[in-house]
Design a protein around this nucleic acid. Structure first.
Lengths: 361, 361
DNA sequence: CTGTTAGCGCGTTCAC
DNA sequence: GTGAACGCGCTAACAG
C-alpha cells in the first residue's frame, strides 16, 4: 500500500520519531540526518497521512464553508475569497499553516446545513464559515445554535458571514464565534430613498424567501424608506415573495403589474432577480427605465453589463470573504463585540430614472 | 474534551465494538442493545471522529473537486452538480455512503493544482474530480499525470471533467481514471459555421489563455470552419488571446476593431468574455447585432438575459457534473474507453444576424 | 449476537 | 540530538 513514516525511517536509517521531527520542524535535528531523511522522503514519494496526523495531534486542516448555492456568484465570490485567504495567501496551500477549504452546498436546506455541521464536527474541522442569510424558524435557529456551541466548545472557530450575529451562547467562549455582517437594511433603505428622490411613488418590491434574515432585513430597509416618505400604507400590497433566482423575478414582475399596472419602479431582492424583472417588463412591452425603473442588490459582476446597467447596492463580497477567512484562521483579532459590519454602497446606474410624467397619477 | 466511542460504550453498558457496529450497521446487533446504544449516543451528543475512522478503516469520505475559479458560474454549476450527486442525492449528506465534496480553487495556477493534489493524497481522498481545461506545459502535464497515477494506484477514483483524457499511465488501472469530455471543437465549429451561413466573412476571435486545452480546442473548431470556407488565411491576424473574464473581452474587442475596423462578427472564448465584447462595441457606438454580431460559449444562465440574448454553444454543465459525480462514486460504470463525450449544442439567439450590407465589401 | 485483542499511522512524552 | 514507548479514537478479526 501507501508508504508510511516507518518506511521512510527505515530507508533513512533513523527512527520514526526523527522523521516526524524533520517533517514538522518542531524540534532540533542534526543537519546531516535531516538531509538523509528528506532524501528518503523524496525517493519514496512519501505523503503524510492527514488522518493519522489529525488523530495524533488532535488538529485538522479543514475549514468548512457553508453556502446556499455554489452556482450563485454571490456565494462563489465569498467562498473564493475565504479560500484564497485561508489557503495561505500567496504561499502554497498545504505548506505552512494553510488550511483546506471545504465548500459545502446546502441548497438553502436547513437539514442539509445541520448535516454538514455534523460532518464538519466529525472531521474536527479547524473552523467553519457560514455564509448567507439564515432561515428563521425557531426550531432551526435553535438547532444550529446548539451545533455551533458544541463546535466552539471543542475549539473550532466559527464565523458567520452575511448573517446576523448569534446571541451569546451559554458556556461558549465568545471569541470563538464571530460575525461579518452586511448592512442589508441600510443599503435597502438608501436604494429606496434613491427611487423616492427620483419621484417614484408606486414602487413594487420583489422579496426573497419569506423566512430568511437577508430577505427580512432588506425588506425592512425598503419599508423604512417608504415610511419616512409617508408611503407605507400600500406597501404590503406591492410586495411579492419568491426565490433568489431569475424566474422568480420574472414571475413576480408579472404579478406586480397585475396588482398595479401603473407601477413606476420595482426593487428586487438581488441582481439575479432584477434581471428576471427586466426580462418580464421587456416581454410586456415596457421599457427600462423609460416606463419602469428597476433596481437590484449585491452588485454582482454581470450587473454593470446589463442593458441598461443595473442600479444596485454594492456589497464588497470579496472583502467580506477575506475578512471572514482571516478571522476563522485567527490571523486577525476579532472585532469589538465580535461583529464587524460591512458597509454597503448605492450604485446608481442607468436602470433607474425619473418616472415618465404619463405614468404618474 | 470530546466524547468518544468508549464514553458511549460505558454509558450504554456495552463494549466499544458494539457501539461501532450499531453506528455502522455492518453487523447484526440485538434490537434492545441497539436501542440502548442509540440513546447513549443521543444523550452524550456523540459525533464520530472522522479521522480515527478513516485511519482504522483506511477509507475516507472526502472527494476533491478542483476548479479554476469558484466565482465563475461555469465551475459553480459543475461543482454544484458533483456535490449534490456525491453527497447522496436526496439522502442527507453524512448518512449512508455520501461523501463530502471539497471544492478546491486553483485559480488556474498549475502549482496550486499540484499542491491540492498532494493535500488530497494526504487526506487519502476517496476520489478526485479535475474540472476545466488543463494547462499544456509538458512539465506540468507530466507532473499532474504522476500525481494522478499515484493517487489512482492507492485506489482513488479520478475523473477529468472538461479536460482531455490522459494517455494510459504506466502501471495504473485504467478503470480508475475516467474522463467526461466536452465537445469544444465541434461546438466551436458549428458556431462559426452559423456565422458563415449568415454571410459573415470577417470574423474576429477572442481566445482564452493560449496554453489551455479548452482554448486550443475551441480555436481549432473555429479555424476548421473557416478553412472549410476557404477563409483561414487571415485567421491568425483576427485572433486575440486573453483571460476568461469580462475585461479581457472588452480589451480584445477594441484590439480587434483596431486590426480590422470592418469586422462584422466576433466569436468569444466564453459567455463572460462575450459580455465584455458587447460592452466594448456599445462603447464604440456599434450595435449588436446591427453592426457586429457576437457569439459566446457555454450558455451560462445569464446569457439568455443579455440584451440582445446571446448566441452561444450550450454545454450541459450540470449534466456533466452529475455524470462526473456518479463516476467518481463508482455508482455508474465507466464509459467504454473511459471517455464520455458530452455533446454541445448551438443556441442561435439574437446577438447574431446577417451582416449589414453597408459593412460588407 | 457480543466482548477482547490488535493494530491503522503518526505525534509526543520520556529516557538516553 | 535521537530512539523507545505510549496513546489518539476507531474498526476488524477472532473468540466465545
Amino acid at each position: 500500500m501507501a508508504v508510511t513514516l516507518a518506511d521512510v525511517a527505515a530507508r533513512a536509517g533513523v527512527s520514526a520519531a526523527t522523521v516526524s521531527r524533520v517533517l514538522n520542524g518542531n524540534y532540533p535535528v542534526a543537519g546531516s540526518t535531516r538531509e538523509r531523511v528528506l532524501r528518503a522522503v523524496d525517493d519514496l514519494d512519501y505523503v503524510v497521512n492527514g488522518h493519522a496526523r489529525a488523530l495524533a495531534a488532535a488538529t485538522s486542516d479543514l475549514v468548512g464553508v457553508l453556502v446556499n448555492d455554489v452556482a450563485d456568484p454571490f456565494f462563489g465570490l465569498i467562498s473564493s475569497a475565504v479560500q484564497s485567504e485561508i489557503s495561505g495567501a500567496g504561499e502554497a496551500p498545504g505548506a505552512g499553516g494553510g488550511k483546506l477549504a471545504v465548500v459545502c452546498n446546502t441548497g438553502g436546506s436547513p437539514e442539509a446545513e445541520l448535516n454538514y455541521l455534523t460532518l464538519l464536527e466529525r472531521q474536527r474541522a479547524a473552523g467553519v464559515v457560514l455564509t448567507g442569510g439564515a432561515v428563521e424558524g425557531t426550531g432551526h435557529t435553535h438547532a444550529v445554535a446548539g451545533r455551533l456551541a458544541r463546535l466552539a466548545a471543542s475549539g473550532t472557530r466559527i464565523v458567520l458571514c452575511g448573517r446576523p450575529p448569534l446571541k451569546a451562547l451559554p458556556g461558549v467562549d465568545d471569541s470563538l464565534i464571530m460575525t461579518v455582517a452586511f448592512d442589508n437594511r441600510g443599503g435597502a433603505q438608501r436604494l429606496t430613498e434613491h427611487l423616492l428622490s427620483l419621484g417614484h411613488r408606486r414602487i413594487g418590491y420583489v422579496a426573497g424567501p419569506a423566512e430568511r434574515t437577508t430577505t427580512r432585513h432588506r425588506l425592512e430597509g425598503h419599508r423604512a424608506a417608504l415610511a419616512a416618505a409617508g408611503l407605507d400604507s400600500g406597501a404590503e400590497h406591492l410586495t411579492v415573495y419568491g426565490y433568489y433566482d431569475r424566474s422568480s423575478g420574472y414571475d413576480a414582475a408579472l404579478e406586480l403589474l397585475r396588482r398595479d399596472p401603473r407601477l413606476t419602479a420595482v426593487v428586487a431582492a438581488n441582481d439575479t432577480v432584477a434581471l428576471g424583472v427586466c426580462a418580464a417588463l421587456r416581454d410586456q412591452g415596457l421599457s427600462v427605465p423609460g416606463d419602469v425603473s428597476v433596481a437590484g442588490f449585491d452588485d454582482l459582476p454581470f450587473s454593470v453589463d446589463a442593458v441598461p446597467a443595473l442600479t444596485t447596492v454594492r456589497i464588497p463580497l470579496q472583502e467580506a470573504g477575506a475578512r471572514a477567512g482571516r478571522l476563522v484562521m485567527g490571523r486577525q483579532a476579532p472585532p469589538p463585540g465580535g461583529v464587524a459590519t460591512i458597509r454597503t454602497e448605492l450604485m446608481a446606474r442607468a436602470s433607474t430614472a425619473a418616472p415618465a410624467p404619463g405614468r404618474l397619477g
